[in-house]
Design a binder for these strands. Structure first.
Lengths: 330, 330
DNA sequence: CTGAAAGCGCTTACAG
DNA sequence: CTGAAAGCGCTTACAG
């Protein structure tokens, strides 16, 4: 019981299979009469042409794969939403692949290669040269977000995490804060860059080295991390968090568990500018990664209209109440 | 410059194309020696077999499509995460399709039919019989979430929205609340059912008809809706919201703009049990749709291990601070 | 175990 | 404008 083919339609309409093919190929030449007859036959059989033979013929599937490592962070949603909408608008289909860890990336891309996807965009970064080499062998264009390694086929588009970290340190300093704190995520490229930028910025401004605790990437991690960081005698008066989820958790812990006020006692800055950052309960100052710009970078690379293999996108600082007022001179 | 084919590998290894095919078919018979030779040749050429011919041959693509209407709601994330993870674990690939509106569903499925997807799961509901008829013609299994219409090929798995609405009314009543309010979403199946259940429950319990305002589905809608609903003289003392995003917006507006306490002045219940519902700033009582159960329903339908075309999943009430204490006798 | 051949359902020159 | 035929890259009986 397989779906009807163009041959089935041709038989019913009393024409050649080629005629049927042309009828469903925009711009191909078919006389109005035969076209009508063919469409009627197709309708009767419930015929829908397969895209598969064309993909085999052309080698282009019009499928782009997006690899994500977990969808709990609303930031991934925003990115996925923007990317899939744009790719679809350009006539592509989007395959989404959930990966447990970035070390699985070579297996995943190998699997994707069997479907002849045109490109893969990965929210997971490539962390070893071995994986990069394997990926390169597949000869399918890979664009990673917030990653580092590049190759003949691997490019990367990143938020300027380091620059944002520096800016956070400067902002706190301009607000008169002297005891900076940092809540880190698990080891990863963006985490490392944000932290390095923050520490470098603090040092350049003559600040003592920020206090630091490892949290993670989720709300609960932020709560626990804040408790750990504020458990000692020398509490920070300014806190930069690896992302907004962690910042929200930290703020709630600061307020509910430690009785501290934000921003009076502790200034807080996050990263990603997720929807919740603007919610009344938080009003979190944050860095917006500028997803449209990230997307433009990815599209430029895939379209080949740009020669760089690494594009850095400056994030936009979104000022809200948690970092205190007035805004710094800009 | 197309990727190497099995024929290329065969030529290099000095064997037939069939032998190459068998080498990459688990369980097929090839002698260890030729297999080794073929794998070496494949390695040298960077050969990856295409899945396309097999799809053509078998008619099964192992691709299931998930149609979503916008990813702003963390609930969609949780669902997408659970569904895609499970489908992948079962050896399928997931295509994600963003749709602007449910009226586009027939075009979308038509497009998907060209890729011979095995099934489509839609977060968008089918709202007209015409669309249902078109979909049915494609003969590809469609499972909609929280929808209504079914057909030979269309099934639906829903949270028991009506039952949850009734339960919300009962809970408020048991908490001694007498002026119920409802914040509605835009017209849609789950919205209608939740509201109808809430009103029916209120009536059955001898409550006056709840006050009502149309909000929408997002945080800002909740804020505006709460302001509208509480703008009059007769303010509700209990508020059921079409979803958690709306409930969070309403709570913030109640607290920040109207100076009301939650739950002392107003009890609030939401729907979806998104991550933010459990955050310290909200502690929102909500209905958890039980995504694993929803998923089991979808899988049972697609596997054909169940004959129903409409499965109703009871949601789980998650009690938190916003609906007041103590919990109702259960 | 191995190879030649047909076939999956289209597209694309090529004739007519 | 229309049809016969080759070809995309595999899988799958069928012989050997």
């Amino acid at each position: 019981m397989r779906p009807p083919s163009s041959t089935d339609v041709a038989r019913l309409a009393g024409v050649s299979q080629s005629a049927v093919s042309r009828t469903f190929t925009p711009g191909a030449s078919v006389s109005p009469e035969t076209k009508t007859r063919i469409l009627a036959a197709a309708e009767e059989l419930g015929y829908t042409p397969t895209a598969l033979p064309r993909i085999m013929q052309t080698g282009r599937s019009s499928i782009v794969a997006i690899v994500v490592g977990g969808l709990y962070n609303p930031y991934f949603m925003m990115a996925l939403d923007a990317f899939s909408t744009s790719f679809q608008a350009a006539g592509n289909h989007v395959m989404i692949v959930r990966a447990e860890s970035d070390s699985a990336l070579d297996d995943i891309v190998g699997d994707l290669a069997r479907y002849r996807v045109d490109a893969v965009v990965s929210a997971l970064s490539i962390r070893s040269q071995a994986v990069a080499d394997t990926l390169t062998n597949f000869k399918i264009p890979v664009v990673t977000l917030n990653s580092g390694i590049t190759s003949e086929t691997i490019s990367t588009v990143s938020s300027d995490n380091h620059g944002a970290g520096e800016l956070a340190a400067r902002l706190f300093t301009e607000r008169g804060r002297r005891r900076l704190g940092y809540l880190a995520g698990h080891d990863s490229r963006p985490q490392t860059d944000r932290e390095a930028g923050f520490f470098a910025g603090a040092e350049a401004l003559g600040q003592p080295a920020p206090l630091r605790a490892v949290a993670g990437f989720d709300y609960a991690d932020g709560r626990a991390g804040a408790l750990a960081l504020f458990g000692g005698p020398d509490r920070p008066d300014a806190l930069f968090c690896v992302n907004d989820l962690v910042a929200c958790g930290a703020i709630d812990a600061l307020r509910d568990e430690l009785g501290l006020r934000v921003p009076e006692d502790v200034c807080v800055i996050g990263y990603d500018d997720i929807a919740m950052a603007s919610w009344g309960a938080y009003r979190l100052t944050s860095f917006n990664q500028d997803i449209p710009a990230l997307l433009r970078g990815v599209e430029a690379i895939l379209a080949g209209t740009v020669s760089e293999r690494a594009i850095l996108v400056p994030p936009r600082l979104i000022e809200r109440a948690t970092a205190g007022w007035p805004p710094p001179p800009s």
